[in-house]
Design a protein around this nucleic acid. Structure first.
Length: 700
DNA sequence: CGCGGAGACCTTTTT
DNA sequence: GGTCTCCGCG
């Protein structure tokens, strides 16, 4: 007996997928077509058909998306076995025939859970550490130095982060490093040999530290499935249904993993939209979705083309945006909603005025009855939102920032979690360097010497018990460090370990060093509270590394507007959306232009525009105003290539804040003249003003 | 060899 | 604004 009335709750297109999504299936779904909803109902339907939750694998792009979907599934069904807890129960992990909680999450989180069980098969012990991007970079930096390719001494060599990007891309695209270097930067080809050496050193360094990076998680997961038939059969037999959301953003490794995981039952349902592919920098392979019918010759193809989210005006704009791309399926989305207002373009004199205009408009929206949490501001890069953040703070508008620095990436959180990491894995070089550097008298040299001596120990308990470690002038610092580690060893729970580090010394350190130590101590307490939900140290550390923005506080559903990068806004929607910084030189990103990825930048704009339900604002400043550069720039090419009549425009010059002028037919060739307070034309040559940062131009 | 101050330089997007 | 390097002092 079905509890859910599918006929009533779904439209015919969605219903078709939910009821007939057996075998290999491709769902081509446009923006706002109820993609997530369809997958959610499909999972609920399978459960109602008697499929057990542990027989379904749901792969999503973020852990949050999986969690949300599973919570919704739980609400929809009252299936006795339904379980929306994404955290694995360690006692049951890897035991065949016993249900575990591995049913949803990202590729990386699923990989980490599987690899903890089978680490020995890929040549690691199960106490391995997962390195985040920062850790990888710091290790790569050491390797670049070792190979004599130090970019700080010789500018011709790539920086650690640039090398990391390139290397990571080559691994995920399964292309040789040399080939990627050739494509990305011809200047580096001469050095490809030495850079290949850097890659080797990095691999060795990770192995010695018993550490794996994000790419290793995927590669080792794939290796496990390819080389170990028992594991492959075990997993593929167990997962009767595999569902993958945002399939357009998967790379070749992920596609192979999916293929092997579904190789027994062949029930693979993938959902995606080629117009929303925005992760090629991470080697996402659009061919995965385009060639799906070829790869799976018996594949059923479903299309969801109705748009339930946006007003016809917003949708029309979005369709116009994507029309400018050549390599795209021509598929205009059909609007279901009734007519609303035209998307509004707002130009401002400076980034600061742009910020002010946006906050003004947000205030209007609130008065007009739009709920605060239904307003979002989206941008290409996190730092574009800096002036806006400043303005929101100044005017006491509560906001939530997504993108940029994450909770677990904050320095004080990493300082403390590094202590837990050396406890979990004594070989963890990156964590040790961070930990040791915190103590008085220990710099990089002494830390290196201590690390050398630590290699003789297998466990932290032995190392801490030893009286023979010499630390030169850092001796007293090392003693303090030892004391803290001893305290931690006496605390079995991750949360107790965190509190031990804080109370035994880190608190004093923060108070001495940081003016905002109160906030940081609060963060650390939040961190400890978070740790209480996870019983096992490895699981805890995996969650810390693989979890995207953990927001820290519980009352997350409070009335806050959302500030987010466009990438992070994927899959979400709001009543009112501002897309800001649509300025030449900011969006499209200049680096993307160099790499010839203009179409992807345009898709990014498309994703941003299609987040809006009723109101869409596109804003740009005419000057940057940061770093003293007041030269006038053009609006984004993505704006000028659109027909003017599908948008309403508001323009603001210097000192003309109150001017609200709608321009019906804006002549593209006519240059926008920006005037200062005195009504004079602003010179286009940059005016150097060092103190100009965070100060409005018309206040100078 | 650690450390603090001064100044140069850089900032895409994410698991 | 943040991060990183350089340099002089103890």
């Amino acid at each position: 007996m079905n509890k859910i009335d599918y006929q009533k709750e779904l439209n015919p297109e969605q219903l078709d997928v939910v009821l007939h999504g057996d075998g290999p299936c491709l769902v081509l779904a446009g923006a706002g077509s109820g993609k997530t909803r369809t997958v959610t109902y499909r999972v609920a339907y399978l459960l109602e058909q008697g499929i057990k939750p542990e027989e379904i694998l749901l792969l999503t792009f973020t852990n949050k998306a999986a969690k949300e979907m599973l919570t919704r599934v739980k609400d929809l069904t009252n299936h006795p076995n339904s379980n929306s807890n994404p955290d694995p129960s360690p006692a049951r992990r890897g035991v065949p025939g016993v249900r575990t909680d591995v049913i949803g999450g990202t590729f990386h989180s699923v990989a980490s859970r599987v690899l903890r069980s089978y680490a020995s098969l890929v040549g690691r012990t199960n106490s391995f550490t997962i390195l985040d991007e920062d850790d990888s970079k710091s290790l790569i930096k050491l390797c670049l130095k070792d190979a004599g390719a130090d970019s700080s001494r010789d500018k011709r060599f790539p920086s650690p982060s640039s090398f990391q990007n390139t290397y990571s891309y080559s691994r995920n695209a399964t292309t040789g490093l040399r080939e990627v270097l050739e494509r990305r930067s011809p200047a580096l080809v001469m050095m490809s040999q030495i850079l290949e050496r850097v890659a080797e050193l990095y691999e060795t360094r990770k192995r010695d530290a018993n550490a794996v990076d994000f790419d290793d998680l995927l590669l080792m997961f794939l290796e496990l499935l390819q080389k170990h038939e028992v594991v492959r059969n075990n997993l593929a037999t167990r997962f009767k249904y595999v569902l993958v959301d945002e399939f357009q953003d998967t790379n070749l490794i992920q596609a192979k993993i999916v293929h092997l995981l579904s190789s027994v039952h062949h029930n693979l349902l993938v959902v995606g939209d080629d117009a929303q592919s925005i992760y090629s920098f991470r080697a996402a392979e659009i061919k995965n979705i385009l060639d799906f019918p070829k790869t799976y010759s018996d594949a059923k193809v479903f299309r969801l083309t109705a748009n339930y989210r946006s007003s016809p005006e917003i949708l029309s704009l979005a369709n116009h945006i994507i029309k400018n791309n050549q390599g795209q399926f021509d598929k205009s989305l059909q609007a279901i909603k009734k007519s609303g207002s035209l998307p509004k373009i707002i130009s401002s004199a400076s980034t600061l005025e742009e910020a002010r205009r946006i906050v003004d408009e947000i205030t209007h929206l609130k008065v007009a009855g739009v709920p605060t949490k239904e307003i979002a501001v989206l941008f290409r890069a996190a730092f574009h939102a800096q002036p806006l953040e400043y303005e929101l703070m100044k005017r006491n508008v509560p906001y939530e920032f997504r993108g940029g620095m994450r909770f677990f990436e904050r320095a004080h959180i990493k300082d403390v979690s590094s202590h837990l990491r050396v406890l979990a894995n004594i070989k963890d070089e990156a964590a040790w360097l961070r930990v040791l550097g915190l103590y008085q008298g220990i710099g990089s040299m002494t830390a290196g010497k201590i690390l050398e001596q630590l290699r003789q120990f297998e466990t932290l308990a032995e190392a801490v018990a030893s009286e023979n470690i010499t630390a030169g002038r850092g001796a007293s610092g090392w003693e303090i460090c030892r004391g803290i580690l001893k305290h931690m060893l006496a605390s079995p729970q991750p949360s107790d370990m965190i509190r031990a580090v804080v109370s035994q010394g880190y608190k004093d350190y923060l108070e001495a060093e940081q003016p905002d130590f109160r906030d940081r101590l609060d963060d650390l307490e939040q961190f400890a509270v978070f740790a209480e939900t996870v019983p096992n140290l490895h699981t805890f550390l995996d969650n810390v590394t693989l979890a995207e923005n953990y927001s820290g506080n519980k009352n997350d559903h409070s009335e806050k507007i959302v500030l987010s990068t466009i990438h992070q806004a994927k899959g979400l929607e709001w009543d009112a959306v501002f897309v800001i910084g649509l300025r030449d030189g900011a969006f499209p990103n200049p680096r993307a232009l160099i790499e010839g990825a203009i179409e992807e930048e345009r898709r990014l704009f498309y994703v941003a525009a299609t987040r809006a339900r009723d109101r869409l604002y596109l804003t740009y400043p005419l000057t940057d105003g940061r770093s003293g550069d007041y030269s006038i720039s053009e609006p984004s090419m993505f704006l000028s290539e659109l027909p003017k009549k599908i948008m309403a425009e508001e323009r603001h010059g210097f000192g003309l804040k109150q001017r609200n002028e709608k321009i019906e037919n804006w002549d593209e060739d006519e240059p926008v003249i920006v005037l200062n307070k005195m009504g004079e034309k602003i010179p286009s040559a940059p005016v150097k003003k060092k103190f100009g940062f965070l100060r409005d131009i018309d206040e100078l």
